[in-house]
Design a binder for these strands. Structure first.
Length: 570
RNA sequence: GCCCUUGUAGUUCAAUGGAUAGAACAGGACUCUUCUAAGGUCUUGAUGGGGGUUCGAUUCCCUCCAGGGGCACCA
């Protein structure tokens, strides 16, 4: 509807005023009911070019649009300083309700598109537990995957785990020095972290240790048997651990291409870079890309011939582009790496792999420790993600125990899982992704107020009413029976579902969808307080049940797009 | 030093150049013989400072201040 209104205005204006270059104007979703459902600023934008009073322009446009409005179930109102507000009439609202009932969980989804979008996210590092800081990339990435799929794109969800590089030289060196096979077998992840921390701390003041690490990695790249064996051990245990975490948070990433996968492709990148004269070989043997502008140079090969993260990233860019021809590659990685991706995107274009424009770094703020600094794994300050999730489930369980003691234990556990994990995810997804988050247990595990449980609770209450009604809503829509403000406000809000998803996906900002769901829950709660359903007269009861049933569909659908489950009881 | 990013109630966060800057938590006052009180109603309270562009700026530009991050042999 939003885009239809905009298009209609555009046509009307160019016809009426004969404007060739239409200045950009907006058709926004109104924030307040008294401003209608949509509002346009077109008259104010045109005021200067046309040298006319904006109110006068608004009236002219409105008159021209009148027929079109009636056809589409819209009424308009012109308000100073020159807004044109559009109100959807009851007929229009009835059509929406009908569509929700018909399409169910597909309501708001887009038609199938040919474009392929690659979304790279999560990408944990081998030999380290997944920490809270992996939460953001994993959850934001997953919700983008869900939204773009819903909109009809062919989405390739992909992760690029770090299993190669000098840090594995450090680990192998440490394992050879202090490794204990027994301890390793008992708790491999903990042992790997210990080795890494111990080594890094010594290496900080000891140059020879760093040299040793580089040497061990070099040997790994040259296929040294013992080093490869140790590395495989690390890899196997790590992937097992990742799978556990993914299972717990309900994330599935079908395509996993670890750094080491691209080893055979590195040579070609080096050849591309040298033959195209993009990179220069230094006297010490290193290979560096220098940029024309003031972007700092990017190293592709060390003086000892070993490759770097950037080399492997470029290899994967080439691989992906040639294999899938994506129209967009979205990479969900923290703020930290902004400069790095600038460099890599530039080189990708210089090498002729793809235009820079199809590459998008979706960056986000970092999770900081209580002192406001970043979590440094090297100093062993990491908070494992599983700890956070377990604590969330524990807290949810406590609340359920207090409020809903009649449910069987098994169902209670299931609900605690959905609520606890949902709360953690929603906390992250409901805020603007660019700001840093200072880690705080209470903040992250909030189960009250503007949170996942708030939305989930609203859903459970609707479901409870539907269960108690003992009748199936007829599905017949008699919109004239819905007269109360609370009913119409609810419907008006549901109307915008599809637009919000599009907007969220386009901006790569799931928080708009989260905000939308909070407001939807708020509206259903207002409805719940004031409008009786079960005790209403038969026809009205049926209409109201149809209405809340469709609200439930949207809540579920929206929460699922954020990667959060809902539950029938809680 | 250069680059990226953030700064909004006591606290944690919203706000697509629009209309009276929204929530939540904390504080205060109400609300379960009525469909789940993880709810609802009322209430106190904010755009870091200074310029500029605009009919209109939390949003765009400049500058200063403060936080976080980055700047070739780590990833």
């Amino acid at each position: 509807m939003q885009s239809q209104i905009k298009q209609a205005i555009k046509e009307t204006v160019s016809k009426k005023f004969g404007l060739k270059n239409m200045p950009d104007f907006s058709v926004d979703i109104s924030e307040k009911p008294e401003h209608g459902d949509y509002a346009s600023n077109v008259a104010m934008v045109l005021a200067k070019t046309l040298k006319k009073n904006p109110l006068e322009i608004a009236h002219i446009i409105d008159m021209e649009l009148e027929k079109w409005n009636i056809k589409n179930g819209l009424k308009t109102e012109i308000v100073p300083p020159g807004f044109i507000n559009f109100f959807i009439d009851t007929k229009g609202l009835g059509l929406v309700l009908k569509e929700i009932i018909k399409k169910k969980e597909k309501f708001g989804s887009g038609s199938k598109k040919k474009e392929t979008i690659i979304i790279e996210y999560s990408s944990p590092n081998i030999a380290k537990p997944m920490g809270v800081h992996h939460l953001r990339t994993t959850i934001i990435g997953q919700s983008l995957v869900n939204m773009y799929s819903f909109l009809g794109y062919k989405v390739l969800a992909m992760s690029f785990p770090g299993d190669w590089g000098t840090q594995f030289g450090s680990l192998i060196a440490a394992y050879k020095k202090w490794g204990d096979a027994k301890k390793f077998k008992v708790s491999p992840i903990k042992e790997m972290l210990n080795l890494y921390v111990r080594f890094s701390q010594l290496a900080e003041s000891d140059e020879t240790m760093q040299e040793e690490a580089r040497l061990e990695f070099k040997k790994l790249e040259q296929n040294n048997k013992e080093n490869k064996r140790i590395w495989n051990l690390f890899r196997k245990e790590s992937f097992k651990d990742f799978d556990k975490v993914y299972k717990k948070i309900g994330v599935k990433i079908p395509l996993v291409f670890a750094e080491s996968f691209f080893e055979p492709y590195l040579k070609q990148v080096i050849i591309d870079a040298t033959t195209k004269k993009i990179a220069q070989r230094g006297v010490d043997g290193s290979l560096v890309v220098k940029f024309k502008d003031d972007t700092p140079p990017l190293l592709l090969q060390k003086s000892d011939g070993a490759t770097l993260y950037a080399t492997r990233d470029l290899a994967q860019m080439k691989y992906r582009i040639q294999k899938w021809h994506p129209s967009k590659i979205i990479i969900v990685v923290a703020n930290q790496q902004t400069l790095y991706f600038n460099q890599v995107f530039k080189v990708t274009e210089l090498l002729g792999y793809a235009k820079k424009e199809i590459l998008k770094h979706v960056k986000f703020g970092m999770v900081l420790d209580s002192t406001g600094k970043k979590f440094a794994t090297r100093e062993g300050k990491l908070i494992p993600l599983t700890d956070v999730l377990d604590e969330a489930i524990k807290r949810a369980k406590k609340v359920i125990g207090k409020l809903n003691s009649k449910l069987p234990q098994k169902e209670k556990d299931k609900i605690a899982n959905i609520v606890g994990i949902g709360a953690v995810k929603f906390f992250d997804l409901s805020q603007n992704r660019l700001s840093d988050i200072v880690f705080d247990w209470n903040k992250m595990l909030n189960l009250k107020g503007a949170s996942a449980p708030y939305v989930q609770y609203s859903y459970a209450r609707i479901k409870s009413i539907i269960r108690k009604s003992k009748i199936k809503p007829s599905g017949k829509i008699k919109i004239e029976l819905l007269k109360e403000d609370e009913e119409l406000n609810l419907l008006r809000h549901m109307f915008h579902f599809a637009e919000i998803i599009k907007y969220s996906a386009l901006k790569y900002e799931p928080n708009h969808l989260a905000e939308y769901l909070l407001r939807l829950a708020e509206k259903i709660n207002n409805f719940y307080e004031k409008i009786p359903i079960l005790s209403a007269e038969k026809e009205i009861k049926d209409a109201r049940l149809t209405l809340i049933n469709s609200t439930a569909i949207i809540i579920k659908s929206g929460m699922n797009l954020l990667g959060i489950e809902v539950t029938e009881r809680m």
